[in-house]
């Protein structure tokens, strides 16, 4: 067990409990921080788009080609853009900080 820090679209920070083996999207979703995640982890939608804190970006597995392709459709792509459903949490990521991108907004 560990925790991650999520900044939501209202710029509020949430410190949420993180379990090994879940994706960062699932951790955010389970903590009831609103995230659209239409395809719920199938790497098909980009509505789980987050910006990873620059300090952390090199400490997580790089993007796969499949993730790159879906990020091609991301609005407001930045160098630290990731699909949160494609980041698998493990205890090395304890303290990870991410910020939700606009397209994670639920209706």
């Amino acid at each position: 067990m560990g925790e991650i820090i999520v900044t939501d679209l209202k710029n509020e920070k949430h410190t949420v409990e993180a379990t090994e083996g879940l994706s960062v999207m699932e951790i955010i979703y389970d903590a009831n921080v609103p995230i659209k995640a239409t395809c719920f982890g199938c790497c098909s939608c980009s509505t789980c788009h987050v910006y990873v804190d620059p300090e952390w970006i090199n400490r997580i597995e790089p993007r796969s080609e499949e993730e790159e392709e879906i990020l091609d459709m991301a609005v407001d792509f930045r160098d630290n853009s990731r699909l949160s459903c494609q980041i698998l949490y493990n205890n090395d990521l304890n303290g990870l900080q991410v910020t939700l991108a606009e397209e994670t907004k639920t209706d």
């Binding site: 659209k36 239409t38 939608c45 980009s46 509505t47 459709m73 991301a74 609005v75 397209e103 209706d107």
Partner: peptide, 11 residues
């Protein structure tokens, strides 16, 4: 940038 789903007028 592709499509996304929105509830829209049904609400």
């Amino acid at each position: 940038y592709g499509l996304t789903m929105k509830l829209g007028p049904i609400a």
